[in-house]
Design a protein around this nucleic acid. Structure first.
Lengths: 328, 328
DNA sequence: TTACTTTCCGTAAGCGCTTACGAAAGTAGT
DNA sequence: ACTACTTTCGTAAGCGCTTACGGAAAGTAA
């Protein structure tokens, strides 16, 4: 029923050899435009998808590892999605994937050919270690002098806050946490810049620590409003915290978005599904697929000895049902 | 540095052919005890681990799929761990893994050779569908007339509640949710039985719905205690809810475990790490590795046409820092 | 001893792909 | 028209395993 076509069948269908098919699959040179098209047509006709297992076996055994910051909460929804995308991408390209276990000192115990790092600080010992070992790596995050890819966190904070300002809000809470981390620092930075543009001074008591959990967001927001916070909007640095914020507001008798607007960050449908607001959570969308694809590309460059290059991937505010024009 | 040994090298080291090595790897017949030992020694000596990619390529292309109940929250910590273990196990055995996408009606769009189902009800249409299609499957859960594997949820509830009773507690809250699901029904059943053994009648207001989230647990417990609940212990049907319960109690000025004891379910260190109680969360441990391994074994039996068989895997209470003897 | 089993193990053909290598055909330079 | 490239593509040798097949060695029966 679900027998998949092989490269052999595609070759026969197109009247060429399997070598040629492989070449067009990997878009390598040495195939005329005409046959290239013909092969592509056969691929489509047979719904051919290369077997990644065979691919990984025949390719040079390139193992790419993922190394996690020791403090990274592995089970965060965003991270799980990230991992899923990364593995899918690597597989598709015929690479092997292995998680690099952190030994003592947080340094890896053994090394694959290339590694992708997640959640490292600028002065993380692993960066220096990998550089010393000569193992190419790319950081998902930002640090000077290394290959990195990161979403435009600053711009995300900017977009979210401007959106709130445009709706007439003036007192805007920021629900953050993990303030040592660059990503969240940047989101906060965007928020501050937007406030500044609007001539609104930042206030210490508008910065809440939600620890990047739903419960943390709930407790922080509840406490803030219980002690008389007059804010009409909150910008949370993650969807989970936004969810917590919404629950807290509900429990205090406030309705979202009529009384208070809430915007999240990440735009994970899996998280926001818990919401009872039909139009969904207003949130800053990160393109995880884009980020992981770029990470892999940069790593390949590193393996080829190309010069260091980094990339920022854009984010976009998705205005939905939890933000509304300010009233009163 | 990290060049792994191949079967070829093991064969040379042991002075046999690769065929023989493969036979001992798969523990097939036709190898004398003497050479079997010798090969095993070489395997250890070279720290040989078979390459699962090559394995998957050479084996009959057996694809096993995982099908999720449509309502299953994919990003639940327990489920992520489950998935991780399942994939590792399948890989190790040289099987391919693919997630089976649910089409409309919740039925799969195409079928692999065998499937593992998670979170299905007894009358889930997928069960009948797979049976009709003649595709072997195993259910992680319980249902009559099919191959299934499940933790002993009832016994877990029993152990947890008896533990609390043994510590002198008499008013014990149960924090559940998703009451349609068999697993949670069973945990509740164990709780009820333990209460009954102790001659304590169950009370409607001792059953809370925490929706299996941390926040849900928090809200339910907070509301209960705010409206005068005099309980001294709570048995939560998941670690996440237990965490929420603990936070709620804290916020109400109660300390755990001095004022109130809390026991969770699943025993996921990743979840309980958020706790500030040094000795950790008292919880009912599920052996995920055992469950997934059994699921794969049962599926293999199904593929071989063996008669239907099911298995319950034991759970064990891990008494730690969130339970203590009742005072007053 | 011969004939016939049984046990043990080596050989080689795959699994589906990638990629040197070299042959054939086309292009250019003289 | 002849040499010298260049482009295009087929051939075949792997990647690290599994497994059907068959041969050699060893055991059993006469």
């Amino acid at each position: 029923m679900s027998e998949r076509a092989t490269i052999q069948q595609v070759a026969e269908h197109a009247g060429v050899s399997i070598g040629t098919v492989s070449r067009v699959l990997n878009s390598r040179a040495g195939v005329s435009q005409a046959t290239r098209e013909r092969v592509r047509a056969s691929i489509r006709a047979l719904a051919f998808r290369p077997d990644h297992v065979a691919r990984a076996l025949s390719k040079a055994p390139l193992r790419v590892g993922l190394s996690l910051a020791s403090g990274t909460r592995r089970l965060t929804p965003f991270f799980m999605l990230f991992l899923e995308h990364l593995i899918a991408r690597l597989q598709q390209d015929g690479y092997r994937f292995e998680e690099v276990p952190a030994g003592r000192d947080g340094l890896p115990e053994w090394l694959p050919n290339g590694v992708i790092l997640h959640g490292a600080h600028e002065d993380d010992p692993r960066l220096a270690y990998l550089r010393d070992q000569g193992v190419p790596f790319v950081l998902v995050g930002r640090a000077p002098g290394v290959r990195w890819v990161a979403p435009d966190d600053h711009d995300g904070g900017l977009q979210a806050t401007r959106h709130l300002l445009a709706l007439g809000h003036r007192e805007i809470l920021h629900l953050g946490g993990l303030m040592g981390h660059q990503a969240f620092q940047d989101r906060y930075g965007g928020y501050l810049q937007a406030l500044d543009e609007a001539g609104i001074g930042p206030r210490r008591d508008w910065l809440l620590d939600g620890g990047f959990t739903t419960l943390g967001g709930y407790r922080a927001v509840r406490r803030a409003f219980e002690s008389g916070c007059a804010c009409t909007a909150v910008f949370a640095a993650s969807d989970e915290m936004a969810l917590g914020a919404i629950a807290a507001l509900e429990d205090l008798g406030l309705t979202v978005p009529l009384d208070v607007s809430v915007v999240g960050f990440d735009d994970l449908p899996e998280v926001a599904d818990a919401l009872r607001i039909p139009e969904g959570l207003t949130s800053v969308r990160q393109d995880i697929a884009h980020i992981t694809a770029t990470a892999v590309t940069l790593l390949q460059e590193g393996l080829n000895g190309a010069p260091i290059r980094s990339e920022t991937v854009p984010v976009q505010l998705m205005a939905r049902g939890t933000t509304a024009r300010r009233r009163r």
